[in-house]
Each structure stands twice: as C-alpha cells, then as structure tokens.
Computed example of a mutant assay.
Amino acid sequence: MTESALQGQFESIAGWLFESQSAIAFTGAGISTESGIPDFRSPGGVWSKNRTVYFDEFLNSEADRYEYWRQKSQTHVEFEAASPNSAHRVLVEWETEGKLSAVVTQNIDGLHVEAGSQNVLELHGTAREIGCLSCEKRWPADPWVQRFLKEDRVPSCPDCSGLLKHATVSFGQALPEEVLQRSIELASNADLCFACGSSLVVHPAAGIPEVTKRNGGRLIIINRTETPLDHLADVIIREPLGSTLSQIQQFYMDRC
C-alpha cells in the first residue's frame, strides 16, 4: 500500500471516530510489544520456552504450582520494567474525549490501567495482583514474587493458608463471567471497534470484535499478521500500533 493510500485510511478512520457515539478498543499482546513485552506466541516468547501449566494441574500438584510460580516470576520482571507506550496513551485520550467507552483487553500486563484508562475490562485478569483461591483476598504481586524468588518455594495465603495464584486466567480456567458479559454488551452497542494487536484466535475473547460487526458497527483491525476476522473488517492495517493510532489521533484532532 502506498503512503498516500495509508494516510487516506487513517483519515477515514478518524472521520468514523469523530462521528462515533460508542467506540471500543479490543487489545491483544501486540499493543504491548512496543513497551518491551514480547508476544507470548512469538519465537522466544514465554510459550515457546515453557510448558503450559493448566489450572487443574496447579490445583492438584505441588510441583506444577512451583513451575507456575517459576514461569510467572520470569514474566513479572518484564511487566514491572515496562511502561505504557503511545498506543496506550492514545486510547486514554479517546476515552477522555468521550469517544471510547471501554478498553476490552486480553492482556494481563496492566499497562492500560497504568496509562490512565478508566474503563478497562481485563478478560484474562491481571498479573499485577496475587489472589487467594480460597478467601479471594488480593495483594500487589511484586512482594509475593520477590518472596518466591528469595525463598524458592510457593507461598500460601497468610489469612487462610489457601493457594495463592496470580489474578490471571490460566488454561483450563473459566473467564470471569461478569467481565465477559459486560464486554459482549459493550461490543453489541458499539458503532466502532478497534481490534489492536490481537491474533483473534483465543476464544471466547476473540469473538468480541465480531459482535460489533454483526450488530452493525464498523471493525478496524490493526495487526501485523492475518486474523480469522479479516474478511469482516472495514479496514485492515498492518503497520505498528503506536504510530498508527497516533496518526489517526492527529487526523481526528484536525476535525475537532
């Protein structure tokens, strides 16, 4: 695609955003790679170097709980070092201007919240917190990770001795029903959906942008690679997210 054609797409999207009454953003790992967090599926990513610890394994095996904590402690270092990038910040601006009703994210890194987004629906939870599976109390993750690294053993809940786990959804664990249903409701009512940095293959989360399209809204997919929903998209952009959203924002501001 020529530069002029790409700029034309940005201008068209900015026009749709300007007219929108209820846009949402659906984000995946690709929005955080520019913050230095590797895509889990990419070569060298977590999933290429470690085996998956399923939820039932975590519940039933002390050795698997240790492996889970070992892996999570590795990714914790990356999350703690990362900061929101320009893509995160543009979404905050759109929310502040009343154009974006919510960010629905597959990410567990917490960067949307750190950037300042107020209405963030974390479908897969957050790695910024540790939760007890018994009493459901939560704490900031960093002290617990540091304790694990120092003591080299899996901690237990100080209140009820229950199992402690990052407040994220593991393989084999159900998504939080309230968060999923709220996300579907927002997608149903949205007139514009930005699907940003997601391969759109992990269900049920990946079906949320399709809900917007099926209910008459526009779908914009910004992702480096093809997705199963490309045939539904009004516009597909294969450019970096930070610069793409920033340029759309510039065209949008020119209209204001």
Rank of each mutant, 00 (worst) to 15 (best):
L123P: 06
A127H: 07
S117L: 15
R153L: 11
R147A: 07
S134C: 05
A141H: 02
S134N: 10
C160L: 12
C135N: 06
K165F: 09
H124S: 06
A167F: 12
P158W: 14
S134Y: 11
A115T: 04
V169G: 14
S134A: 12
E114I: 15
P176K: 07
T168Y: 03
T126N: 14
F148I: 00
E178G: 07
K150Y: 10
S170M: 15
L133F: 13
A127L: 11
Q118G: 09
S161G: 02
D159I: 08
K165M: 11
L180S: 03
K165C: 14
N119I: 14
S117K: 09
I130A: 02
L180I: 01
P176I: 01
P140Q: 10
K137M: 04
W144L: 04
G131Y: 09
R128I: 05
E136M: 03
C157A: 12
H166A: 12
D159C: 06
G131P: 01
V179Y: 00
R153P: 02
A167R: 13
W139P: 01
A127I: 06
N119P: 05
N119L: 12
L121M: 15
A115F: 11
Q146E: 14
E136A: 11
E129A: 12
W144D: 00
Q146T: 01
Q118R: 14
G116E: 12
C132D: 03
H166G: 06
A141V: 03
S183T: 05
P143N: 09
E177K: 14
E129F: 11
S161V: 09
L133Y: 09
D159K: 06
T126P: 15
A127K: 03
L180V: 02
A115S: 12
V154H: 05
L175R: 05
E129V: 05
C132T: 04
L123Y: 15
K137N: 07
A141N: 01
K137Q: 09
V179E: 01
G162K: 09
S161E: 07
K165E: 04
Q118L: 13
G125D: 09
G131R: 13
P143H: 11
R153G: 01
V120G: 06
L180N: 02
K150P: 00
W139S: 06
C160P: 02
Q181K: 10
Q173L: 13
I130G: 01
S134P: 00
L164I: 13
S117M: 14
A167D: 14
G125V: 04
L149K: 03
E151G: 00
L123D: 06
H166R: 06
V154K: 02
C157M: 14
G131A: 12
G162S: 05
P143C: 12
G125L: 07
R147V: 00
H124I: 07
D152K: 15
R128Y: 04
E178K: 10
F171N: 01
L123I: 10
L123N: 08
K165A: 13
F148Y: 03
